[in-house]
Amino acid sequence: MMKTYGQIVLPGDRLDSRVEAERPFVTEVGQEKVATVLGMISQREGKGFFVPLKSIYVPKPGDIVIGLVEAVAATSWNVDINSPYSALLYAQDFLGRSFNPSTDDLYQILKPGEYLKARIFAFDKTRSPLLTVQGEGLGKLIKGAVIDVPPAKIPRIIGKKRSMTALVEEKTGCSLFPATNGRVHVDCPSPELEAVAIMAIKLIEREAHIPGLTERVANFIEEERRRKGI
């Protein structure tokens, strides 16, 4: 049975050939377009799009990601970017100058367990992804909290033209950065507001596929702030 708009689609389900979808979320079996992951079909401007509800983050050059330092190597750090592939950040790139092992202690600069915002510089599946922190707003995250969410939910947390992120920011006074690899950096004026912002993100994560989300998120934040008196 062909799936229509708004329906949940499962691996093996046939899709209308006009539905636009990226690999690997669809594949061709014979002449037919077949879904490979759990998702749904949404309609925008008369066109059908396949929206995955489950996905695994595969780095793409240019993506801004939030990485977690896993280990310190001789001249680089191994960074977990919530992907099948662990990334590399060279000390030379982080320092912005040549690295001198006799004077620079990598362990003092970035310790395992610390988060950083970086850009994927190069990746082609044959070697580990290479990160760079050369760019505005990139580098070690020194305050706020990082929340892990499924990468498939990030577009919903951002919203159309960043509408959902802007809504949470406006209602909580926090600053949000949803990274494509399924991590959200939240920087709030107080721990109480941080807790509300995190709960709002978790609500978006849970109900990303249900219509009327913007209104529910706005009401949720207002209600939580009223209840907690903040």
């Binding site: 691996p11 594949t27 992951v37 695994i56």
Partner: peptide, 11 residues
């Protein structure tokens, strides 16, 4: 496997 979001041609 489907719950993990791994692309599968069918269940």
């Amino acid at each position: 496997l489907a719950d993990a979001g791994l692309p599968m041609k069918a269940l």
